[in-house]
Computed example of a mutant assay.
Amino acid sequence: MKSRVDAFHMADTTLNSDGVVDLLWPEFIMLADGNYIAYDNVREGTKAFMASLESFDSEWKNVRIIPIGNNHAISSFIFTDSLVAKDGTISQSQGPNTFVWEKRDGIWKVIYGDVDHYPME
Rank of each mutant, 00 (worst) to 15 (best):
S76D: 09
A48C: 04
S55R: 08
M30E: 14
S82W: 05
S76T: 14
A38H: 11
I66R: 11
D18R: 03
A48N: 08
V5W: 06
T80N: 11
D57K: 14
P26T: 15
S82N: 14
N16F: 07
R104N: 09
G88A: 01
G45A: 03
F77K: 15
I90H: 07
G19S: 05
K103A: 09
I65Q: 00
G19R: 05
S3L: 12
T13V: 10
E59F: 11
N16H: 05
D18W: 07
D22P: 05
E27H: 13
L83V: 03
S3Y: 14
A85T: 03
M120D: 07
K61L: 13
T46P: 01
T46G: 07
S17G: 10
E121Y: 12
E44Y: 08
D18Y: 03
W108M: 02
G69K: 06
R43W: 00
D6R: 05
S52L: 02
P26Y: 07
G95A: 08
D81I: 03
H72M: 11
I37Q: 04
F28K: 01
I68D: 07
D105E: 14
V5N: 05
P119Q: 06
F8I: 15
W101K: 01
I68Q: 09
T98I: 11
A38G: 12
A38K: 12
P26I: 12
P119N: 02
P96G: 14
T98S: 09
R64D: 11
G34E: 02
N41R: 13
Y39D: 00
N71I: 10
Y39R: 06
I90R: 12
G45V: 04
D40H: 14
V21N: 08
E59D: 12
N35K: 13
V20H: 01
V115C: 09
I37R: 05
L31H: 05
D116E: 09
W60S: 05
W60A: 06
A48M: 10
A73E: 01
E121G: 13
S75C: 10
D6P: 02
M1Q: 11
S91F: 00
A38W: 10
